[in-house]
């Protein structure tokens, strides 16, 4: 294994650790914030940045181009579904708020 590969492996591990940090922070926010909309904010940060960094780290360590591309497709789908779900939750919160006087 050349030193470039070793370097990429370590860089990937570092990026994954950073992503895990975002997940921990987001989960903490989800548990500690009192309002649903704040919780949503924390959750989307964790989802977007955390998942993005973890996938980026895994791509750096990926054994081949095909695996890397698959990981990126998984990340894209995760992004789309996260955006969709948080949009729906936000909308539901809005309509509940409008109904209250």
């Amino acid at each position: 294994m050349s030193w470039v590969m070793v370097g990429l492996d370590w860089l990937g591990a570092g990026v994954i650790a950073l992503g895990v940090g975002f997940f921990v922070a987001g989960t903490l926010g989800l548990l500690r914030f009192d309002q649903s909309i704040n919780r949503l904010h924390a959750l989307t940060k964790a989802d977007t940045l955390g998942l993005g960094l973890v996938v980026f780290g895994l791509v750096l360590q990926a054994p081949g181009l095909a695996v890397g591309l698959k990981l990126i497709i998984v990340w894209t789908l995760g992004l789309v579904s996260a955006a969709l779900v948080s949009h729906l939750i936000g909308q539901s919160l809005c309509s509940q708020r409008q109904e209250e006087p």
């Binding site: 789309v80 969709l84 949009h87 729906l88 909308q91 539901s92 309509s95 509940q96």
Partner: peptide, 16 residues
């Protein structure tokens, strides 16, 4: 159930 407005869900479902 509160009716969901907007095109986001529809567009996303059509794409997915």
């Amino acid at each position: 159930v509160y009716p969901l407005q907007g095109q986001v869900l529809k567009t996303a479902v059509k794409a997915l």
